[in-house]
């Protein structure tokens, strides 16, 4: 008896629609964000993550309206990320109804934003998202990438995670770029290395293809929460089926 492992469906949003890509490319339409959020809530999702992957800033304000609408109908925690550049962006998202804001590229370009946002709004609402890839040309195993996975940073993902927590990140969302959209499972060694190195919760992301992958994310990867998109969007599994499976395999769920 204790804290449940969380299942978090992830909605990638662009131009007001939910989409899903493979290895950060080839986007396919997956539906209306409010309808999808409502459906996952009804299925027992523990939390929802919205990533604004809008390429142009023209459509950026759309996400605020979507969050406002979701937040007035769905009463579970909402995390929103994508395009957060300054503390003011964090404030606007929180005011729209987000409970947590995820910061990725900006954390690398300007780590002060993480520190300022955490000290102003509290660590509980600051998630740092880390996109990591296995590399051979560095003295470490996993490197941090930014700009949706296009730019290498030269940063060691494990050390970077520790640094972000020291600045006030209350949670880490770790995405394996090698696994994203591949359906071969989370990168558990990467997640385990980071989870063991920090005290804050870790959300595993990238690569879920079946329900055993969710279990492995917790037992092998040390994740406190598991995030998945396509297995839920296209109706392969419901959140409830995922919970039942995790429970049958000895994990505590809500």
């Amino acid at each position: 008896m204790g804290l449940a492992k969380r299942i978090i469906p992830c909605l990638d949003v662009t131009n007001g629609r939910v989409v899903k890509g493979v290895n950060f490319l080839e986007l396919r339409d997956a539906g209306d964000p409010v309808e999808i959020a409502q459906r996952y809530n009804d299925q027992g999702a523990d939390e929802l993550t919205f990533l604004d992957i809008t390429a142009s800033s023209d459509d950026r304000d759309l996400i605020l309206h979507i969050i406002e609408e979701v937040a007035s109908q769905v009463f579970i925690p909402l995390t929103v990320g994508g395009g957060v550049r300054q503390v003011e962006d964090v404030r606007r998202l929180l005011n729209a109804g987000a409970d947590k804001v995820s910061i990725n590229t900006t954390a690398v370009l300007n780590p002060q934003v993480v520190q300022d946002a955490a000290s102003r709004f509290g660590s509980q609402c600051i998630v740092v998202a880390i996109d990591a890839k296995k590399v051979d040309n560095q003295p470490f195993e996993w490197e941090v990438f930014t700009h949706g996975g296009r730019k290498a940073t030269g940063l060691d993902a494990v050390k970077w995670a520790q640094h972000m927590v020291s600045l006030g990140a209350g949670e880490l969302l770790v995405t394996s770029m090698d696994r994203d959209g591949t359906k071969i499972g989370f990168n558990n060694p990467l997640n385990r290395a980071i989870s063991d190195a920090v005290d804050v919760p870790l959300i595993a992301s990238g690569g879920v293809g079946n329900l055993q992958h969710l279990v492995d994310g917790v037992t092998l990867g040390g994740a406190d929460a598991v995030l998945a998109a396509s297995i839920f969007h296209y109706g392969e599994y419901t959140v409830q089926q995922a919970k039942t499976y995790m429970q049958q395999h000895g994990l505590e769920v809500r």
């Binding site: 804290l3 492992k5 509980q124 209350g170 804050v200 406190d224």
Partner: peptide, 11 residues
Amino acid sequence: KLKVPHMGWNQ
């Protein structure tokens, strides 16, 4: 290992 913050659904 249990994390801090205590984050998520508990009884």
